[in-house]
């Protein structure tokens, strides 16, 4: 099968998954006690049955479940995620405002984790009894066991009380609202450091351990022995033969982990008051702002599906053995 055909198949399957996500969310929200009419009535300070019925008919909540679901799916297809009663704004607009901040956090922390994880893992595999190897072992234990918000809070304490060089909250200083774009970008990068490091800490551990394990496995394989036997320089064997082939597992895991990374981002955003999707999700969940919650679940599943397809394609491009089937 050609790459294009596989891609088309994966996209079609992704769409089915996405519709399943929407159906699940919609069902959950329908069977949960209380609906939008109740929360609007709650904000009004209570309402009688007649007013409740009027609100329900205005928002179409008195229609049969299938009709409501169908209407919701067709409006999503038109890129309309509904209207937030809490923020008084279209959900699509709300989410698109917050999405860049989350993507910036998620991707920068993943790049950091992969780069440093690769470096540490390779160094540890090269010298199994070295100090670096010990660091990788400790890092991997710490990365799994430390709650991510705790790491963040410890960093905040450190960078406020002891070494105040990085800002510990928000995304940009309010005074820069009219400043030229490059000044704003530098300021954002400055604010990004701590949230990025916090989120990267979990995955740094995972990636360094994974790289070490797959490097060790590849270094023991026959073709590496052949390469050494024919007198190839050790550096060349290491980086050209071994490293290239141990990238596969790293790409696979990084792709599979992506939905966990989004979960991590929700917590990190809450710790550092980073104005992204996670903060929006938390606020709308606490306010029971159903359309916004559903929109965020939809969009984050979409992001996960897209990343999974991309991972699959990258794997096929770097590894001819997978491409073959």
């Amino acid at each position: 099968m050609s790459l294009g055909k596989i891609l088309a198949k994966r996209i079609g399957y992704g769409l089915i998954l996405l519709i399943a996500v929407v159906v699940l969310n919609f069902t959950l929200i329908t069977i949960a006690p209380g609906d939008v009419a109740d929360s609007i009535a709650g904000d009004m300070g209570g309402a009688d049955a007649e007013v409740l019925a009027e609100i329900r008919s205005r928002y179409g909540l008195d229609r049969p479940f299938a009709v409501q679901l169908g209407r919701y799916i067709s409006s999503i297809a038109a890129l309309d995620l509904g209207y937030s009663y809490f923020y008084n704004a279209p959900v699509t607009e709300l989410i698109l405002q917050r999405l860049p901040a989350t993507l910036l956090l998620v991707f920068s922390s993943q790049i950091l984790a992969i780069a440093v994880g690769l470096l540490l893992g390779v160094m540890a595999a090269r010298k199994p009894n070295s100090f670096t190897n010990l660091i990788v072992t400790f890092l991997s234990l710490f990365g799994f066991a430390a709650p991510v918000f705790w790491t963040g809070i410890l960093l905040i304490i450190l960078f406020v009380a002891i070494w105040p060089v990085f800002p510990v909250g928000g995304m940009m200083s309010a005074s820069l609202i009219d400043a030229p774009w490059y000044e704003q970008w530098i300021n954002i990068a400055y604010h990004l450091v701590l949230p990025m490091v916090t989120l990267a800490s979990i995955y740094l551990a995972l990636y360094s351990r994974l790289t070490r394990a797959s490097m060790q496995e590849v270094l023991g394989s026959d073709y590496v022995r052949t390469a050494r036997a024919k007198g190839l320089a050790e550096n060349k064997v290491f980086y050209k033969h071994a490293l290239k082939n141990s990238l596969g597992p790293l790409v696979t895991v990084a792709g599979l982990q992506f939905s966990a990374v989004i979960s991590g981002a929700v917590v990190v955003e809450a710790v550092f008051s980073w104005p992204g999707l996670g903060t929006l999700a938390l606020q709308s969940i606490l306010a029971r702002d159903t359309p916004t919650i559903m929109g965020i679940l939809f969009l984050s599943s979409l992001v996960v599906i897209v990343v999974n397809i991309l991972t699959d394609m990258i794997l096929r491009m770097i590894d001819p053995r997978i491409r073959a089937d």
């Binding site: 998954l17 996500v21 699940l24 969310n25 959950l28 599979l256 939905s259 966990a260 989004i262 979960s263 991590g264 929700v266 917590v267 999700a281 938390l282 969940i285 919650i293 965020i296 679940l297 984050s300 599943s301 996960v304 599906i305 999974n308």
Partner: peptide
């Protein structure tokens, strides 16, 4: 696996 775990359980 596609559902963002934490978000979904928060909901």
């Amino acid at each position: 696996q596609v559902l963002p775990t934490l978000l979904f359980s928060m909901v």
